[in-house]
Simulated scan of single mutants.
Amino acid sequence: MQNPALAAAAATTASGFAELPATASHGPLRIEYRWLNETASDAPLAVFLHEGLGSIAMWRDWPQALCERLGMRGLVYSRPGYGLSTPREHGVKWPVDFMTAQARDILPALLDALEIDMRERQRMWVIGHSDGGSIALLYAALYPDALAGAVVIAPHVFVEDISVESIAQTKQLYETTDLRSKLSRYHADVDSAFYGWNDIWLNPAFRQWTISAELASIRQPLVAIQGHDDNYGTMAQIDTIAARVPHAKLVKLDACGHSPHRDAPDKLNDAIAAFVSAQR
């Protein structure tokens, strides 16, 4: 049965912008965010980290549905360069370690700006998809005492040929089909969003990127989920997680591609709910 407090809060969302001060890794940033079930103040918090071309809008209603299933509040935000957040300046390239900077600097600064205290963070779950899954892994490794657990969906731990080939094909589609106009629904500056993601993944220097060593620092509960038909990565990604984090649970979904929340939402939600419930 659904938590009555969450049922009352489900229709309540609060959107806004958080102003983050400049640091050594970035200039001043304006971050688009949205609360889900905001008035359920006693519920644990789930923070959603979107994919490389994602945003608040591109998640659609999946975070809300999952929060209601888990009995949690939710925080969804668009990373810099995406959605309505500060766009990437044209001509500026993301550095090879851009995901580390997102986990180490941007997410903690956003939590600070939203006045999410340490006690609340210790009950917090991070839920990331694709690049967002990698950022969730890095956050869990960097701040093991500042979360309750992590859910990573189709994360990248190292760069595979299949990833680079698919991303190169996506660039061709962006420049020759209506993909650009479709993505423009989700980003204020669609070229900033697309080329920020595409250029770094196709940068030859990025082929050496890996976070496999960092994974050994993860202490909190972790579930990694991957579809067998993912054209952006193979099962080697989450198998590497299991080798580095022995307590991690793996879920491998049949008839599912790179976006399980769209391809197999019921199976995905069942897997996440079962894992989170087992930790309580």
Score class of each variant (00 low, 15 high):
D105Y: 02
A193H: 08
T39H: 12
E51M: 05
A243M: 04
P44R: 04
A24D: 11
E89V: 11
D229E: 10
A274P: 01
N37Q: 10
R219L: 00
V47Q: 11
A273G: 07
H247S: 13
E214V: 03
W201L: 14
R119K: 12
M235K: 11
V159M: 03
L6E: 08
I211P: 06
Y139N: 04
R207T: 03
P80M: 06
M1I: 01
A243T: 02
L111W: 13
D230L: 14
L253Y: 00
Y143P: 11
A22E: 02
D117M: 04
I238K: 06
R79P: 12
V159Q: 00
Q237E: 06
A8G: 14
S25W: 14
L147I: 03
H90S: 14
A43T: 01
A136M: 00
Q102I: 03
T12Y: 15
D191K: 07
V76F: 15
R207P: 04
R244V: 12
P221E: 05
Y232Q: 01
L173M: 00
N231L: 09
P155E: 02
Q237F: 09
E160K: 06
A22Y: 01
E32W: 14
P155F: 06
I218F: 10
Q169D: 12
H261V: 04
D105M: 00
N203R: 10
P44E: 07
L66E: 04
R60V: 14
A10F: 15
L142A: 13
G74R: 09
T176L: 07
I211E: 08
I225Q: 12
P44Q: 13
R185V: 11
P108E: 07
I162R: 14
G196T: 00
P80V: 07
I241R: 01
G74S: 02
A154I: 09
W197L: 10
R280F: 11
K93H: 13
Q2L: 09
G196S: 00
T177V: 07
L250N: 09
G74L: 01
L250V: 04
L253R: 00
F206I: 08
H26P: 05
F17E: 10
W35A: 07
A168Y: 10
W35Q: 07
R104V: 09
L53K: 15
M72D: 05
V276L: 12
A109E: 13
S277A: 13
S277P: 06
D270L: 07
K252T: 10
N203A: 11
E38K: 09
A193E: 03
L215G: 02
V157S: 14
I238R: 08
F206S: 03
G133M: 09
P260H: 08
A141G: 13
E89M: 14
L111R: 12
N3F: 11
L268H: 08
P80F: 06
S181A: 14
P108R: 07
T23F: 11
P246V: 10
I127P: 10
L110R: 08
F194Q: 04
D270A: 04
A57D: 04
I272A: 15
E68F: 12
Q237L: 07
W94K: 09
G54H: 01
I127Y: 09
S259V: 03
L222N: 08
A273S: 14
Q226P: 10
P260Q: 03
A11M: 00
D270T: 02
D254T: 12
